[in-house]
Computed example of a mutant assay.
Amino acid sequence: MYRSGVVMAWNVFKFCTALRGLGSIMILLVLGVVGVTYYAVVLCNYGPALTAGGFDSLVAVLILIVFHALLAMLLWSYFSVVFTDPGGVPPNYRPLIDQERGEMDPLEASESVPLATPDSTHTRIRYCRKCNQLKPPRCHHCSVCGRCVLKMDHHCVWVVNCVGALNYKYFLLFLFYTFLETTVVTAALLPRFIVFFSDEEIPGSPSTLATTFFAFVLNLAFALSVFGFLIMHISLVAANTTTIEAYEKKTTARWRYDLGRKRNFEQVFGTVKSYWFIPAYSDEDLRRMPALQGLEYPTKPDFDTQEF
């Protein structure tokens, strides 16, 4: 029995190590998909159409403008997720006593320990036995990164990083712009794709036609899959929860961090509208919204743990 447990733990460790090694491979894969798409849309189809004149040139200009604008936002958002630390527990972290007094979540109770204070009978905090440190609210340990991550949502192999408090907005924008870009590309290449199954003579070299066909299928697949993923995360933002929390609290009647859709949205995107669609926060929001730093989160004023 002991031996099987050791083998299972070793296999999990091996799996986590393999995920860490995917880093540069996944980034190159993403850039490869972007490169194939760019070649098909710009170099093979709509770039040459610019010299055709008339209505075809106008359509080509519009498609290329939208394509490049969305591509720029997609790449900006993607590399913001990749290179932004999702948030780690600060050294010598100590939680605020008034945030803990009598407000322990049922899904956090199993990993909490008494706090050595004069009123320790009513004050409990969370503790990570892997990192040997205290855990802020909504913080979880990532086995791939080997550390605790603030408001961890999940570890994403596509961005080679954890998605947490400090880069969750950037991840959502990456999904959003990926969906828009792949939808635009699918629509732009659809007429060329239809020609493949018609009796019309198809202009272009075999390599050009093959690239166009492949880019259409690839972008259609990404558009459909990302759409489902985007809808799921929109529902999570609306409820002010994460993927991990949604799974852990599925039997919980109420959620202490659900402040209403508007405030829940602001907990991720901030209050300054001009920053909602770019992977950045205003200095004003960073100063007055502690939730964006990942350590403190407002709760319902009428929340009563005795209901659970």
Rank of each mutant, 00 (worst) to 15 (best):
S4F: 12
V7L: 11
V7K: 10
A9K: 13
A9I: 05
W10S: 15
W10C: 11
N11F: 13
F13T: 14
K14N: 14
A18W: 05
L19P: 01
G21H: 09
L22Y: 03
G23C: 05
G23Y: 03
S24C: 10
L29D: 02
V34S: 07
V34N: 07
G35N: 10
T37V: 07
V42H: 09
C44P: 01
P48H: 04
P48K: 05
G53D: 06
G53R: 07
S57T: 15
S57Q: 14
V59N: 04
L62C: 14
I63H: 03
A69V: 15
L71C: 10
A72T: 15
M73Q: 12
L74R: 01
W76V: 05
S77Q: 07
Y78R: 04
D85F: 00
P86I: 02
G88C: 08
N92W: 03
Y93S: 10
R94L: 12
R94A: 10
R101V: 15
M104S: 11
S110F: 11
S110E: 12
E111R: 15
T117P: 01
T117Y: 00
P118K: 07
S120Q: 14
H122L: 10
T123D: 05
K130F: 10
Q133N: 12
Q133L: 08
L134P: 00
K135T: 15
P136E: 05
P137M: 03
P137W: 09
R138L: 04
S143R: 12
L150I: 07
L150D: 04
M152S: 01
H154L: 01
V157M: 11
W158C: 05
V159W: 03
V160A: 13
N161H: 09
V163D: 04
G164M: 06
L166R: 15
N167F: 06
K169H: 08
K169Q: 08
L173D: 08
F174K: 03
L175D: 03
F179I: 11
L180I: 07
V184A: 11
V184H: 03
V185P: 02
V185E: 04
T186C: 12
A187R: 00
A188G: 06
A188L: 07
A188W: 04
L189N: 07
V195G: 02
F197D: 10
S198K: 02
D199V: 09
E200A: 14
I202K: 04
P203L: 07
T208G: 14
T208K: 12
T212L: 05
A215T: 13
L218T: 15
L218D: 05
N219G: 06
L220A: 15
F222M: 15
F222T: 13
F229M: 15
T241K: 01
T241N: 00
A246V: 00
Y247N: 10
Y247G: 01
T252F: 04
Y257C: 05
R263Y: 02
R263L: 13
N264R: 05
E266M: 13
E266D: 06
F269P: 02
W276D: 07
I278P: 02
D283H: 08
D283R: 14
E284L: 11
R287Y: 01
R288A: 03
M289Y: 01
A291R: 02
G294Q: 03
Y297T: 04
P298A: 06
P298V: 05
T299L: 01
F303M: 06
F303P: 03
T305H: 07
Q306H: 10
E307P: 00
E307I: 14
E307M: 04
